[in-house]
Computed example of a mutant assay.
Amino acid sequence: MSQRKWEYNGLEFEADFEDVNFLENYSKAMHKLSNSCKTMPKDGTDLERIKTLCNYYYEFFDDVFGTGTSITLFENKHNLRLYEEAFISLVNLNETANEQMLARRMSLQPKNRAQRRKNYQ
């Protein structure tokens, strides 16, 4: 059974990685975050870079779960560690869901090669 909820910081969010609509939001947000990080300005102070990264993560969670999610999750705190821990937690949930889907699909496959060949002829 897949997990359909993401629990973090005492809160619970819909996170069904087998649902096309949720997966589309997640994929778009991951792509946006990845592109933002690649194009992040290299100049400036460490503080400016940390603020920029915080803003990227802030947008990520709002993009995945809807506007206002970051405020709910982090209570207006701009702490890179909190953002990264939440991000890692969500990515780990995605990996677990992917493993469950693969195991389910593999259980549907015939166990021996001869049977698989017969099914595809």
Rank of each mutant, 00 (worst) to 15 (best):
M1C: 03
M1D: 13
M1W: 10
S2E: 11
Q3P: 00
Q3K: 11
R4C: 04
R4S: 06
R4E: 07
K5C: 03
W6E: 01
W6N: 00
E7C: 04
E7S: 13
Y8T: 12
N9K: 13
N9C: 02
G10S: 06
G10E: 04
L11W: 02
L11S: 09
E12I: 12
E12G: 04
D16R: 03
E18M: 04
E18S: 10
V20W: 10
F22Y: 12
L23P: 00
E24L: 13
N25G: 00
Y26S: 01
K28S: 02
K28R: 04
K28W: 00
A29W: 04
A29M: 06
A29P: 03
M30C: 15
M30L: 15
H31A: 15
K32D: 10
L33V: 12
L33E: 10
M40N: 04
P41M: 12
D43C: 11
D43L: 10
D46N: 07
E48H: 09
E48R: 10
E48L: 10
R49V: 10
R49G: 07
R49T: 14
K51G: 10
K51I: 13
K51L: 15
T52H: 14
L53T: 04
L53P: 01
L53I: 06
L53W: 09
C54V: 04
N55C: 06
Y56V: 01
Y57M: 00
Y58E: 05
Y58D: 09
Y58H: 09
E59S: 09
E59V: 05
F60I: 04
D62Y: 00
D63S: 11
V64G: 00
V64D: 01
F65R: 03
F65T: 03
G66K: 11
G66M: 08
T67K: 13
T67M: 08
T67V: 11
T69E: 01
S70E: 03
I71M: 11
I71C: 05
T72E: 09
L73D: 01
L73V: 06
F74A: 02
E75K: 15
N76K: 15
N76V: 02
N76Y: 08
K77C: 11
H78P: 00
N79M: 04
N79R: 09
L80A: 05
L80I: 15
R81M: 15
R81E: 15
L82C: 06
L82M: 14
L82V: 03
Y83C: 01
E84N: 12
E84T: 10
A86R: 05
F87E: 07
F87V: 05
L90K: 00
L90D: 01
L90W: 00
V91F: 14
V91G: 05
L93V: 02
L93T: 02
N94L: 02
N94S: 14
N94Y: 12
E95L: 15
E99G: 09
Q100V: 15
M101S: 14
M101G: 07
M101F: 10
L102M: 11
L102N: 08
A103K: 13
R104P: 00
R104K: 13
R105C: 07
M106R: 14
S107L: 08
L108H: 05
L108V: 05
Q109A: 06
P110L: 14
K111L: 07
K111R: 09
N112S: 07
R113W: 06
A114K: 08
R116P: 01
K118A: 12
K118Y: 06
N119G: 01
Y120D: 12
Q121H: 05
Q121P: 00
